[in-house]
Design a binder for these strands. Structure first.
Lengths: 178, 178
DNA sequence: CCAATAGGTCTGGTGAATGAACCTTCGTCT
DNA sequence: AGACGAAGGTTCATTCACCAGACCTATTGG
């Protein structure tokens, strides 16, 4: 969790969840993973997080079964961090929390919009497609694109620049594919 | 947020949300508020949180517009902490995160189950009523009850004991109504 | 040989969380 | 009156996590 690292006395599913993703940075790392960030250095530059903290968080998320390490080259062995099935199921809470933040705590509107890849319709509040019906759209079928109406500054790291182009969630960003 | 207290460099709605409810204890306080906890001492004993931290978090949540202070007696002036409209909209993210925690990080199953008050049907993954259809059920129409299948220890403070009885969300718990 | 890339670890300083003690106001009991 | 207790804080010393930056290792390109 955020700081004490756990809430052992809380016999509640929410407390358990927060022990896994409640620490500072953890949820932002997971969000970046949905955005297609996979490499240590990409997380580092995009989040502006201290290296030691990133190492600790990635290891914790792997240990918790939210992320898994996957080699992407052998020469000097290098790993990327990918979402597991368990991690993918965080899309719902993450999307809703993000929407809440967009409604109540953001000036200039949200930076990104999310739509159903199949039909192009913007997702509703719970992450479902109003046109296609059915339950929430799985992240692999979601396209993110920058919000044209957004006003305000932008970051200028390679990852932020890659995220300016609309792309499917979970698809590795250009920086990682280079 | 959890610790640095903000993510100013993150131009993202999620980061904004986390600045408000991402700090350790904040989301648990909000959860308790949904459960009907309103008084300082009830939060204190139910969460096992240091007093100074509780004071800081409650003030921060009030400042952020998630909670509001409402006097419940004059003699010595005493306030309760209630969810605002903005705070009520956190039900969706909170419920989903709790469900995720119940699926992936809890042993012995969840402690509480949530159902639609009107028809008694258990809520689905996004907090909607599978029987009545429509969108997510607003918290005021949700009944929580202990999970009979849950195995494991229980806390034994007055608030935990009050939460053993099934009741509507947002309804003040017995301890506060005494 | 030198520099750069990728992914870390190590270190010292700062700030926040923790638990315990203390304070204040009022109401009640004797 | 005086003692006691509840409710809601504040203050304090200690611990612990975060932070920024320097350093380390392996490999490839020039």
């Amino acid at each position: 969790m955020a700081l004490g690292t756990d809430y052992e006395l809380q016999d509640c599913a929410l407390a358990r969840a927060l022990e896994v993703v409640g620490e500072r940075w953890s949820l932002l790392i997971v969000r970046d993973a949905f955005y297609g960030v996979q490499r240590f250095n990409d997380f580092l530059t995009h989040l502006g997080i201290p290296r030691a903290v990133l190492t600790a968080r990635l290891n914790a998320l792997v240990a918790a079964g939210v992320l898994r390490r996957e080699p992407y080259q052998q020469a000097p062995l290098r790993h990327g961090y990918l979402l597991t099935e368990t991690g993918l199921e965080l899309w719902g809470p993450l999307y809703q929390l993000s929407r809440w933040g967009g409604r109540h705590a953001t000036e200039g509107g949200p930076h990104h919009l999310f739509a159903h890849a199949r039909c192009g319709t913007d997702l509703d509040l719970v992450g479902a497609c109003p046109k296609c019906g059915g339950g929430p759209v799985p992240p692999a079928e979601v396209v993110m694109r920058p919000n044209p109406a957004h006003t305000g500054g932008h970051r200028d790291d390679p990852v932020s620049r890659a995220l300016v182009r609309s792309h499917l969630l979970l698809e590795p960003i250009a920086s990682a594919a280079a």
